[in-house]
Amino acid sequence: MGNRYAYFQGCAARQSCPELNKSTLLVAKRLGWELVTLECGACTGARDLIEAQPEMAMVLNARTLALAEAQGLETVMTVCSTCTITLRQVNKMLKENTSALERSNQELSRIGLRYNATVEVRHFLWVLIADYGLDRLKEQVKRPLSDLSVAPYYGCHILRPSDVLGFDDPDNPRSLHNLITALGGSPADFSSQADCCGFHMMTIDENRAARHAGGLLVDAQQQGADVMVTACPLCHISMDSWQPKSERVMKRKIGMPVIHVAQLVGLALGFSPRELGLEQHIIRPVEIIANYSR
């Protein structure tokens, strides 16, 4: 397995979570990965397009996969769980259903592209664990996170449905736990670590979504977590950007910082909180910024 990856940023890392893009690029470079950013890619359409306009979603994502394949890349690396599930769902269909692949290629031929279904779609967390390996990562740790209790928040679209995702056990996920341990931190188990963050009902019923996300944060806080880590920028938006809303709806202060996986890794690799964009979070991880800026 090489260390060259097609990097699919997704929309959130390009817009409302720029610190995710910044920290991913820093960590990848430090670990010696070559990332080929799919600048000419496109939004996956998330759950909206695949449900309401499935044929459009199929062709649109076939195009993204074909762009990676045309550059000789075997893996599309994602940093968003919803991008992961959507791209993997389409890729699975294209690999298993020849008629779907033919229909996609018919449309793609109009722009000189063809997809031969050779690409795999994998999340940054999976690449880190399966390709790079936690033992190698441990050797790279310059500043163990020994004073940090980290709540591992998985959410949904990196776990379920397991026949589309399949990297971790949805009933007992361990990948984030193992990563936190490898970085020298302590995973703070909490009961809602694989529950939904409520992002996808946010524009349908804001209060409901904010209350739901707030419940997860309080759960992690009650287990003594200093910070929560998430593999998905949409979960991050739910729980960081919207945390003030959760506090209003729940009529209580929460104040739980939520950071991205790449930022957690970056801290242990020795990058400063500023380099990793930690000060960009709505709920600033004040203690981490103070302790890790020295």
Partner: peptide, 26 residues
């Protein structure tokens, strides 16, 4: 329902216009 419809339509419009979702316009 109108919110979900607008959500889907906005995704389609953004993608056709600029490839990526326009979060502001959403």
């Amino acid at each position: 329902d109108p919110h979900k419809t607008a959500h889907i339509t906005s995704f389609v419009r953004s993608i056709l216009r600029g490839a990526w979702l326009d979060e502001f316009r959403l």
